[in-house]
Simulated scan of single mutants.
Amino acid sequence: MNTLQSSSQHTDLVPLRVLAALLDRLEGSAVRVDPAQYANVVSHLSQALSAAKPGDALGALLSAHPAAAELYENTHYEVAGLCRSPLDASMAAEQQARAVIQRAMQSPRESSANGQS
């Protein structure tokens, strides 16, 4: 019985896996992607993610497809939060952004103080 459930769960994820792979291809495309096509793929993937049952199989799929994982986080924030994003990377990005903003805020003042425009 468990084999049947596992097989059924795997089969249910096939459309989700195809859409996730397609979104990865669109995200990594070197050529311009039609915005309507992109939105259509994201819409269908979002619907498939909403219908998917949480579990190891879904987790493995999301680990293999970063664009789908990001979409899952954004559309299931109440359940997933940012749990799929590495906290260290998020903190480092935030600190880097703060440093850049701080430098940008100081630059015009320093230029004005030195008599430069």
Rank of each mutant, 00 (worst) to 15 (best):
N2T: 13
N2E: 12
N2Y: 09
T3E: 14
T3G: 15
T3W: 06
T3A: 13
L4G: 05
Q5N: 08
Q5M: 08
S6A: 06
S6N: 03
S7L: 12
S8N: 03
Q9F: 01
Q9C: 06
D12P: 00
D12V: 03
L13N: 03
L13P: 01
V14P: 05
V14E: 08
V14H: 12
P15T: 11
L16N: 00
R17T: 14
R17Q: 09
R17N: 05
R17V: 08
V18C: 07
V18E: 03
V18R: 06
A20P: 03
L23T: 09
L23R: 14
L23Y: 13
D24Q: 14
D24Y: 11
L26R: 07
E27N: 01
G28K: 08
S29L: 11
S29F: 15
A30R: 02
A30D: 14
V31N: 07
R32A: 10
D34P: 00
P35N: 12
A36S: 14
A36W: 09
Q37E: 10
Q37M: 15
Y38M: 10
Y38N: 08
A39C: 06
A39G: 15
V41Q: 14
S43K: 15
A51S: 01
A52K: 09
A52N: 08
P54L: 09
A57S: 09
L58A: 06
G59I: 06
L61W: 05
L61E: 11
L61V: 12
A64C: 10
A64N: 11
H65M: 02
P66V: 12
A67I: 05
A68R: 05
A69K: 12
E70K: 14
E70T: 14
L71M: 02
L71C: 01
Y72V: 10
E73H: 03
N74M: 10
T75N: 05
H76V: 10
Y77E: 12
Y77A: 10
E78P: 02
E78A: 10
V79R: 15
G81R: 03
G81A: 02
C83I: 09
R84W: 02
S85H: 03
S85K: 05
L87W: 11
L87Q: 03
L87K: 01
L87P: 01
L87M: 04
S90Y: 06
M91P: 02
A93G: 11
A97H: 04
A97I: 02
R98Y: 09
R98A: 04
A99W: 06
A99E: 02
A99T: 01
V100M: 10
I101P: 03
Q102T: 09
Q102W: 09
R103M: 11
A104Y: 05
A104F: 11
M105L: 14
M105R: 07
S107I: 02
S107F: 11
S107D: 03
E110T: 14
E110S: 12
S112K: 00
N114A: 00
G115M: 00
Q116N: 01
Q116H: 00
S117E: 01
